[in-house]
């Protein structure tokens, strides 16, 4: 459904936010795009669909959606119709002065479709949809607002949903409900979903495949089972190891020393080399090309 090949995104001042990313989301699958701040995970898709800020643009590579090259496409017609977006903060995603029902209906009207609003709400698990349709966003809790945002994203039955940290601002118990909803959309509607997050746990819950990003590049891809059982890139391994475990008790959390680089100051060679235990001179000079789903000179080496 979505196929990115060597996509490069730069700012007006020439900083490469995304430095050659390959990413595929097939129909009917949920792909988790995992990364921290500065990894470029958000801007990869916003740039490709024309939602990135002023001056930020795709300057290299190819982005193909549903068989069509996005470079010359009418992105406005695609957004909201073929591609639905769900963002992190449900309280700013909705217009505070319009009723919920009107906002969902508008999503359809913009693309010349009529949407059964009550059904849309029921589909995303909003209880008592007939009453909710007439309510305003401030009358809803965060979890419900996010569901409404998802309903808006799904209103026109898009082929792809891009969900960027959709549960970060929600309570833990509500988070699970939203994840289940995304899984249900995949199972029942065949919706392809790109789930962008920093939380590997979320990805393990609902995703089929995973792509891990670091400093503007994809460092590893694989199925969820592969990644979690046998991650090969040192960064992926470090991410997996640093997640605190409930049963571990009071003990030191494994830490990846240092911090992710700012896009303007990406290290030469492999961007992760300053923080990598396996780094050698080669890593400091030559950026590893992705091979068999992993971009590391020592893929699969000792952990």
């Amino acid at each position: 459904m979505l196929n990115l090949e060597s996509v490069v995104v730069t700012t007006r001042s020439g900083v490469r936010l995304v430095d050659g990313v390959d990413l595929t989301v097939g129909a009917g699958e949920i792909v988790g795009l995992v990364g921290e701040s500065g990894s470029g995970k958000t801007v990869t898709t916003t740039a490709v669909f024309g939602l990135a800020g002023p001056g930020v643009a795709v300057t290299g590579g190819r982005a193909v959606f549903d068989g069509n090259d996005l470079a010359g496409a009418d992105l406005r017609r695609l957004r909201g119709a073929q591609v639905g977006f769900v963002f992190q903060d449900p309280s700013t995603a909705l217009h505070p002065l319009l009723r919920i029902g009107d906002q969902i209906a508008e999503a359809g009207q913009v693309h010349g479709r009529h949407v059964d609003v009550a059904a849309a709400l029921a589909e995303v698990g909003v209880p008592d949809p007939a009453r909710r349709v007439r309510q305003y966003p401030h009358e809803l809790s965060g979890g419900l607002r996010q569901r409404v945002a998802i309903a808006i994203a799904l209103a026109n039955r898009p082929k792809l949903v891009v969900a960027d940290e959709p549960t970060t601002a929600l309570d833990v118990t509500v988070q699970m409900q939203v994840l289940r909803l995304l899984a249900r959309m995949r199972d029942e509607q065949g919706t392809a979903t790109l789930l962008i997050t920093h939380d590997l746990g979320l990805v393990a819950e609902v995703a089929d495949r995973v792509a891990v990003m670091y400093a503007g590049r994809v460092v590893e891809t694989g199925t969820v089972a592969q990644i979690f059982a046998a991650a090969r890139h040192p960064y992926t391994r470090a991410l997996l190891a640093s997640r605190p475990r409930l049963a571990a008790g009071r003990s030191a959390l494994p830490v990846i020393g240092g911090a992710p680089p700012v896009p303007a100051a990406r290290p030469a060679g492999c961007a992760f080399h300053p923080r990598c235990a396996l780094a050698t001179d080669l890593c400091a000079t030559v950026a590893p090309e992705p091979a068999d789903g992993v971009a590391c000179h020592f893929a699969g080496g000792p952990s």
Binding site: P127, S141, G142, G143, L144, D171, V172, T173, V174, Q175, M176, Q177, L179, R180, D199, L200, G201, L202, A204, E205, V224, A225, F228, A229, L240, R243, R245, L246
Partner: peptide
């Protein structure tokens, strides 16, 4: 129990039956 169950598991192998609460924390 629901809070603990709501933690997304780090490994698919650990997926289990869990309590998923209905509704939201009320105001």
């Amino acid at each position: 129990r629901a809070l603990v169950d709501a933690i997304p598991v780090e490994s698919p192998a650990l997926r289990r039956e869990r309590t998923v609460l209905k509704g939201e924390p009320p105001s």
